[in-house]
Design a protein around this nucleic acid. Structure first.
Lengths: 346, 346
DNA sequence: TTGTATGCGTTATCAA
DNA sequence: TTGATAACGCATACAA
C-alpha cells in the first residue's frame, strides 16, 4: 500500500512517517485478535498459543507498534524518574557527581532526566518547570533561592546540592567546606605562610568557602582581609587565571593562594608561573575538589579532595528518604568532609 | 478519614507517607468541586472564580496533589524523551558530547534520560531494556553488535555514536577517524618520524582508528606493523601509562606514538618521561580528541581536536530526522573531521 | 463560572 | 487459550 500511495502522490517523500502511532488496537485489528491477546504477546506472558503470538508479533512489527509508556505507566505503578540539575556538565566536577547519582539511581531502578542549566537562573527555572511535571523528585545545584524554587517545583520533592542548612529549608546534601578550608589553612600556616589570598567563585551567594576562609584568617590572625579575595568569573581555568592576575597585582606580597576549586587553582598556577613565580617555592597553591586533573598538571596540585561520587549517591539516598516519608539525613551524614591531599603545589 | 486511620493505628510514624498519591478526584472531593474545576485551577486556565481557584489550590496543597505525568501524557501528546547511553561519564570526553546532546534536546523541548553503562555489555542491554519502554528514541555508544541492540530495542529508533556505516545498519553519527589519523601521521612524518607506535583503546571492535593508523603506515611505508600497537586497558591515563610501558619495552626504538585518545596520550607522556625520555625531543606524542586537559599538561598535548559538542548536537539532529521519517544524514554531514592542533608534545 | 461525559492506550480481572 | 469489561488519572468538548 505504500507503493500505491507513492503512485498517487509521487511528490511525497518515500519514507514519510505515518501520522499517528499504532496502538494496541490497531495491532489487534490487523492480527484479528483482541487487545488483551496483543498485550499478552507483546509482554511475553504465558497463556497464549505460540502460533497466535507469532501472528500478533508480526502484525506489531508491520505496524511498528510500541506500547505507549504513558498508558503503561497509568496502569503499572512503579516507574520512578528523578531529575538531575547540573550547572555545567563540562566542568569535570559535575560529571563525577552525576555518575554517582546515575549509579545509585540505577541500583534503585530509577531513571534520571538530566538538565544542564549552564549556570543560568532562567534555565534553572525552566528545568524545574519541566521536571516538576515529569519527575518524581529533583536533585541538583541551583542559584535561585528557596522561594523561587518552591514556586517552580509544584510540590515535587527537592534535594539541594551544597546549599547549607541555614541557607535553605529544603533537604540537602553537600560538603563540609569549613572543615576542608580548616585543614587547608592549617597546612599552609604550618608551612609558614601568612599572606594568603583566595580566588573565590562567582556563583551562588558569598558562599561557605569564602566564609570559612575568612574565619580561618581570623583564627590564625593573618594579615589578610576581604581585599585578599578575588572573584573568578566562571569556575574554569581561564577564570582562575584572570582572577589570579588581578590578585597578584593587588597583593604582590602574597605567598599562598586558595582556589575555590581545582580548576581555578590550576588557572592560578598558570598565571603565577607565567609571571615568573615558581610554584610552590614562591607561591603555594591549594585547590579544592580533588579532580583527577590535579595529578596531571605540574606541579601536581595539592587539594582538598572530596568524594564527588559519594556525594551523588548520597543525594539519591536523600531523595529516597524524602519519598519514603523518612527524616532526611542531616549533619555529618549529609555533609561530607574533604580530605587534604598534599601533592607538590603547596 | 485519615484521622480515623491514625487513631486505629497509633504506632504509625507521624510523617509516614500516604499510601496512595492523591488524584484529581481527591482534590475535587476535598474542595467540593468537580474534577474539571480542579484541572482548571491547577493548570492555570481562565474561566474560574478566583475564590474557587484559591480553595482548590489549597486543597491540592493539603493533599500534596501532583498531576500524574502518565495520565497527563496520555491526553496531552508531545512530550518527547530521548535516551542517552554513555560508556563512562567520568571520561571527560563524554560529558562534552552529552552537553551537546542536552543542549540540542533542550532546544527541541525534549527531555533526556541518561544511562552510564560503565563500558559493560550487560548494562548496555539493561539500559536498552529500560529505554525501549521509556524513551522515544535512543542515542549512544554501544559495544553490543547490531543484532543484540535490535533485540533489546523493541523498535525504538536508535542513533549510534561512532559506529561506521559499514559496521552498522542503524543510523549513526561520528568522527572521521581516518581523516584525523591522516593529518596526524602526516605531521609526524613531516617532522622526520618513521618509527611510530600506537596505543589503541581496548573497547569496541578493532576500530577505525587502528585501521587508519595501519593504512597510513603502509602509505608512508613505515617500518611498522601490528606489533607496534599496544592495547590500553581502559580509556584513561592509567591505561595509557601501562600500555606505554609495554610498548617502550617492545619497541625501544620508537620515536613517536599515537594515543587512541588524549587521556591515553597523556598517560604515554607520563610513562615516557618517567623513563627518562624527553617529550617531544626523544619521543613525540600525539593525542586524539582535543580535551581541554591537553592544554594543561606539560608539554601541552598536540592532538587531533574534534568538536564533541557538535557531535552531540548532530546526534540529536539525526534522531529528529529518524522521527520525522526523513533520510538520516550520511557521509561528511554525519562524520565530523578532526582538526590537527599542534602544541608542544609533537 | 461550573459540572458531565467521554476518550486517551494499556493491563488486570474474570468469564467463556 | 481467548475475549469482554473495568479501571488507571487526566483534559477537553459540551452542556448547564
Amino acid at each position: 500500500m505504500r507503493a500505491d500511495e507513492q503512485q498517487r502522490e509521487p511528490v511525497i517523500h518515500a519514507s514519510e512517517a505515518p501520522r499517528r502511532r499504532a496502538t494496541i488496537h490497531d495491532v489487534a485489528k490487523l492480527a484479528g485478535v483482541s487487545r488483551q491477546t496483543v498485550s499478552r504477546a507483546v509482554n511475553d506472558k504465558g497463556e497464549i498459543d505460540p502460533e497466535t503470538k507469532a501472528r500478533v508479533l508480526e502484525a506489531a512489527r508491520m505496524l511498528d507498534y510500541r506500547p505507549s509508556r504513558f498508558a503503561r505507566g497509568m496502569v503499572r505503578k512503579g516507574t520512578v524518574t528523578a531529575g538531575l540539575v547540573i550547572p555545567d556538565l563540562r566542568n569535570p566536577f559535575f560529571p563525577e557527581v552525576a555518575a554517582g547519582v546515575l549509579e545509585a539511581a540505577e541500583q534503585r531502578g530509577w531513571q534520571v532526566v538530566v538538565c544542564d542549566t549552564r549556570t543560568d537562573d532562567a534555565r534553572e527555572r525552566e528545568a524545574l518547570d519541566v521536571l516538576s511535571h515529569q519527575a518524581d523528585a529533583v536533585v541538583g545545584y541551583f542559584k535561585n533561592d528557596d522561594d523561587v524554587l518552591a514556586r517552580h517545583l509544584g510540590g515535587v520533592p527537592l534535594v539541594l546540592l551544597e546549599r547549607g542548612p541555614q541557607q535553605t529549608r529544603f533537604a540537602a546534601v553537600g560538603i563540609d567546606a569549613a572543615a576542608g578550608i580548616e585543614q587547608g589553612m592549617a597546612h599552609l600556616v604550618r608551612a609558614g605562610h601568612r599572606r594568603i589570598g583566595m580566588l573565590d567563585g562567582d556563583r551562588l551567594t558569598p558562599g561557605p568557602r569564602r566564609a570559612a576562609f575568612l574565619a580561618e584568617v581570623r583564627r590564625h590572625a593573618l594579615p589578610v582581609d576581604e581585599s585578599w579575595i578575588e572573584l573568578s568569573a566562571g569556575h574554569g581555568v581561564a577564570g582562575g587565571e584572570a582572577a589570579m592576575e588581578r590578585l597578584l597585582d593587588a597583593r604582590p606580597e602574597m605567598t599562598a593562594v586558595f582556589g575555590f576549586n581545582d580548576l581555578i587553582a590550576v588557572g592560578a598556577m598558570r598565571a603565577a608561573r607565567r609571571r615568573g613565580r615558581r610554584v610552590p617555592e614562591d607561591l603555594a597553591v591549594m585547590g579544592f575538589d580533588g579532580l583527577a586533573l590535579g595529578e596531571l598538571v605540574e606541579p601536581a596540585l595539592t587539594t582538598l579532595h572530596l568524594d564527588k561520587h559519594r556525594l551523588g549517591r548520597l543525594a539519591v539516598e536523600q531523595v529516597a528518604r524524602l519519598r519514603a516519608g523518612e527524616e532526611p539525613l542531616t549533619g555529618a551524614d549529609a555533609w561530607l568532609a574533604p580530605e587534604l591531599v598534599v601533592r607538590d603545589s603547596a
